[in-house]
Design a binder for these strands. Structure first.
Lengths: 339, 339
DNA sequence: CTGAAAGCGCTTACAG
DNA sequence: CTGAAAGCGCTTACAG
C-alpha cells in the first residue's frame, strides 16, 4: 500500500498510481478520448471512485488556455424573465463545461456597452448579452475578439450573432387572439417608435391589418424599461386622453400587463369583460394573478441552447466566421385575461 | 523595444518586463502587498495599463490552492425571491473575489441533501444553501469539510452557521398589522405543524396572543413549497370548511398570497374591504398587483453580506470553529391589501 | 525592498 | 495503446 497524501483532495496522479497507469491514460479516460482498452478503463474508473477524484478545473483551464467561463449580461436578476432565462442557461452551460458569470447592468446603456466591450473583472471565453436598450449601432462598429451572442427583441444586422423569438409573428398572434375574442379597439402598451418600429410593434401593425382593424395612434403608447410602474402610467395616460377606452390591450411584457391591469381597475374597467389583456414572457407568476394572465411564452430552453450553439460556433470557426442569427419558438398561453 | 508576443493576452511576465521589475514585484502591486516604493508602483501600474493586463484567475487559483468559486444552492432561479437574493449575492461575492456557481435543486429534498454533501461537478471553496425543505437533522449528522452557510426559515441548532431574518418577530408583526386594521379572525396560510411550529408560525401565535385574539385552528393551513397554486388550494379549502371566513390572512410568501387572492376573489370576498392580506418576501411584482400587496421585506443585502461573512470566518478559523448564526433585519411595507 | 526558482494540477505534443 | 516531460500563468517561501 502506497503512502497517502496527508491533506487535500485527490489529484490526477493519485488516480494514476492507484490504477497503475500513467497520468495520460487517466486523462484519456476522463476526457473520453479513444484508445483506452476496456480493462484499463475499468481500472481507472474504479480508482477514480476509490480516491474520490474530481478534476481541478483551474488547472485544466490553465493547461487548455481557456477561462472555462462565459459571461451572461442581463439588466437584473431580480427581473423574473431574466432570472428564469439565467437559470436555464446556467444548467445548459454547465452541461457543456462552462461556468456562467452573471453580470448585471441595471439596464444602464453605458453599463451594457461596457459589457459588450468585454470589460469584465476577469477573462471570459464568450459572452451572452441580453439587452433591452442595446442598439444595433452599438454592435456594428465593435472590434470584437471574444465570441458574442446577443439576446434582444430589437432587430440587428443579419451578420450579428443574435437569438430571439420571431417577435413580429408573436406580435401578430397577440392581436389576432384579441380580435378573435371580439376586440375592435386594440391598444399597444410598450410600442417602439412607429416610424422605425421594433419587431413586436411591426407584428402589432400586421395583426391589425390581417384582422381588418383600424390603427388608432392614440392607443399606441411607448414604455422604455418594461416595468409595472411604466405600464400603469402609460395606461393611465391612455385612458384619460383617448376618446373611448380600448377593448383589448397588448402589453409588451407581463410586468407591464400587471401595471395595465392596475390602471384599468382604477378606472372601473373589468378584465376581461370590458377589456382583454395579453402580455409577453410568461413569468412564473402569470398564472397566479387575479385574473390569471394570457401571454406569449418564449421557448426559453430553445433560446438558451441556440445562444450556446452560436457561441460554440464562433469558438470553433472564429469570431468573424461563425455568425448568423437563430430564432426560437413561442407559444400562446390562454388564461383568464382574454375572452 | 522588446519583442511582442504575437498572440494571446498579456501575462504577468509581460508587465514585469515592460516595467523593468520582477514578477514578484508586479504580483505585490496587484495584490496590494506592502513594501513597494511609490515610484515602482507607478511604473507597474502604468505597464499594466499599457499592455492591458488582467490576471488569469485559473492560474492564480491553482497557485493559491483555492477554487475561487462558492456554490449557491437554491430551489430555482425562476422564483424571484431566490433570483433577487442570487443577484445581490453574486455582486457581493464578486467584490470579495469569488465566483458564484448557482446550483438549482427544484426543491427536491434529495437534491438538497446531495448539495449539502458537496456533490458538485467541481470543487468549491464554500457553499451557501438556501433551502425550504432542509431539516436541522440533515445538517446535524454531517461530516463537513467545506465551509457552509444555511439560509432557511426553519430553526437550526445554535452551532449551525445559519442566516435568516427574525422570523418569529416578523410573524408577530404581520399579525399585529392585521389586528391594528381591525381584523379579528386571522388565518395563516402556510403554517408548519402546530405541535412543533416553525418560527413564522410561532410568531403568528405570539401575535394572536399579544393582540388578545383567539386561535381558530380551522384558519391555520399548511403549504409545502410556497407556490401560488398551493395558496389558492389551501384558501379554497379553508373557505369551504370554515364556519365563517377570516377577515385577515397571513400568507407565508408573496406568491402564496397571490393564490390566496385568487381564491378570495372567486368567493366574492373583496381585498382589503372584506379580508386583509399580508405576505412575506417583497418580490419585485408585489407593488404591481391589483391591489398591491402589503408584505414583510427581508433585508436581502444584509442576508447576503452575513452569509459571506460566515463563510469567510469558517475559511479563516476552520470549519469547526468559525460558526454561529446571524440575523438580518426586515421591514413592514404597507400597500393596498391591508386596511 | 527585489529576484530566481519551485510548485500548484492539469493537458498535450512527442517518443516509444 | 502508454509514458516521461514540458508548459499553462500565477504565488510564495527563500535568499539576498
Amino acid at each position: 500500500m502506497s503512502v497517502e497524501r496527508s491533506a487535500g483532495p485527490a489529484r490526477l496522479i493519485d488516480v494514476a498510481e492507484r490504477a497503475g497507469v500513467s497520468m495520460k491514460t487517466v486523462s484519456n479516460v476522463i476526457n473520453e478520448y479513444a484508445h483506452v482498452s476496456a480493462r484499463t478503463r475499468e481500472r481507472v474508473v474504479a480508482a477514480i471512485e476509490e480516491v474520490g477524484y474530481r478534476p481541478n478545473l483551474s488547472a485544466r483551464n490553465l493547461a487548455r488556455g481557456r477561462a472555462g467561463v462565459i459571461a451572461l449580461v442581463v439588466p437584473q436578476l431580480s427581473l423574473p424573465y431574466f432570472a428564469s432565462l439565467a437559470g436555464i442557461l446556467v444548467r445548459a452551460a454547465e452541461a457543456r463545461g462552462w461556468f456562467v458569470l452573471i453580470h448585471q447592468t441595471d439596464g444602464d446603456p453605458d453599463a451594457e456597452r461596457a459589457a459588450l466591450a468585454g470589460n469584465f473583472p476577469q477573462r471570459v471565453d464568450g459572452m451572452i448579452v441580453s439587452s433591452q436598450m442595446l442598439d444595433p449601432s452599438d454592435v456594428a462598429g465593435m472590434n470584437r475578439s471574444t465570441p458574442l451572442v446577443i439576446l434582444s427583441n430589437r432587430e440587428f444586422d443579419p451578420g450579428t450573432p443574435h437569438v430571439s423569438i420571431d417577435n413580429r409573428a408573436a406580435g401578430a398572434v397577440a392581436v389576432r387572439h384579441l380580435a378573435t375574442g371580439g376586440a375592435r379597439r386594440i391598444a399597444l402598451i410598450g410600442a417602439s417608435d412607429l416610424d422605425s418600429p421594433a419587431p413586436r410593434t411591426k407584428g402589432y401593425l400586421d395583426g391589425l391589418e390581417n384582422a381588418g382593424l383600424p390603427l388608432f395612434p392614440e392607443l399606441v403608447r411607448p414604455v422604455t424599461r418594461g416595468t409595472g410602474d411604466e405600464g400603469e402610467r402609460a395606461t393611465e395616460e391612455l385612458l384619460s386622453e383617448a376618446a373611448e377606452p380600448p377593448d383589448g390591450i397588448v402589453a409588451i411584457t407581463d410586468w407591464v400587463a400587471m401595471g395595465v391591469m392596475r390602471a384599468l381597475h382604477r378606472h372601473g374597467l373589468v378584465v376581461p369583460e370590458d377589456v382583454s389583456v395579453i402580455g409577453f414572457d410568461d413569468i412564473p407568476y402569470a398564472r397566479s394573478l387575479t385574473p390569471s394572465l394570457t401571454t406569449l411564452a418564449p421557448d426559453r430552453h430553445g433560446i438558451a441552447t441556440m445562444a450556446l450553439d452560436l457561441l460554440q460556433r464562433q469558438m470553433d470557426q472564429g469570431v468573424a466566421v461563425g455568425q448568423g442569427s437563430l430564432q426560437a419558438g413561442f407559444t400562446l398561453i390562454v388564461r383568464e385575461t382574454t375572452r
